[in-house]
């Protein structure tokens, strides 16, 4: 079941659709600026705004649900929500189990954040969140992987010296690096992993997938998606 629920119904009801279908959007709520729980206790972030907009365009009523990261796919599959919108990169491995919409964030770079720029990444454990493509990458590169359940803990592990670096989406790390007053700096290479970030949808839900694909396409076409990416991830973020 593993379902963390937030009572924040996103009312995307538009005029002329009395019998809207309710779609439940599952997110993690711990990965700012993609998604996080704000001080009012509601889901907030880039994906909150994006999801609400997509639902409006696809004429769906959407509700937000949070779920722990490591069980986010199983709970989609067992039907606890209908869409994963949690900064999830499109990978072949995941694609075998669920379907992805087209990406709403271009294939982005992952980066290492460490206490000093000349850190030897092979010298000690590198922190990554359990069951992310970054964790898989670290294991495949033959580095020592230290797994943590939440993104926040991976950063904490570098601060307290538990790991030599944290490896995560660069967009997630940029604000942390900026606010650390030089304590944390980027180091090493910045590989581009996965096929961008997309919505995760059950393989049997082709109709829903088509609707969201169309909505994402329309946002790409009119430039509103790029505007949103710039708003949340800054000027340096990759655009479509």
């Amino acid at each position: 079941m593993n379902q963390l629920i937030l009572s924040t119904a996103a009312l995307a009801l538009t005029a002329g659709m009395a019998m809207a279908e309710t779609v439940r959007l599952g997110t993690e709520g711990a990965y700012p600026p993609y998604n996080f729980i704000n001080d009012a206790g509601e889901v907030d972030g880039f994906e909150r705004v994006l999801g609400d907009e997509l639902c409006k365009r696809a004429e769906l009523t959407c509700e937000w649900v949070t779920n722990e990261w490591d069980s986010i796919i199983p709970n989609l599959v067992s039907g606890n929500y209908d869409v994963i919108i949690a900064g999830m990169s499109i990978t072949d491995e995941r694609d075998k189990v669920i379907d992805f919409s087209q990406n709403y964030i271009p294939p982005a770079t992952s980066a290492y954040l460490a206490l000093s720029a000349d850190t030897d990444l092979k010298s000690g454990p590198v922190a990554a969140q359990t069951a992310t493509i970054q964790a898989g990458y670290i294991a495949e590169q033959g580095m020592t992987l230290a797994e943590y359940a939440t993104p926040d803990e991976t950063v904490a592990a570098v601060r307290n010296g538990e790991a030599v670096a944290v490896f995560a989406d660069k967009d997630f790390l940029v604000p942390i690096a900026e606010e650390s007053n030089g304590e944390l700096v980027f180091t090493g290479d910045e590989p581009s992993l996965g096929g961008g970030v997309g919505l995760g949808i059950r393989e049997s839900d082709t109709e829903l997938k088509d609707k969201f694909n169309a909505a994402i396409q329309s946002m790409k076409d009119d430039g509103s998606l790029n505007a949103l990416i710039t708003e949340w991830f800054g000027d340096k973020a990759l655009l479509f």
Partner: peptide, 10 residues
């Protein structure tokens, strides 16, 4: 492994 202590190298 469910409560704080991280797993290293899986």
């Amino acid at each position: 492994y469910f409560s704080g202590f991280p797993a290293f190298s899986q």
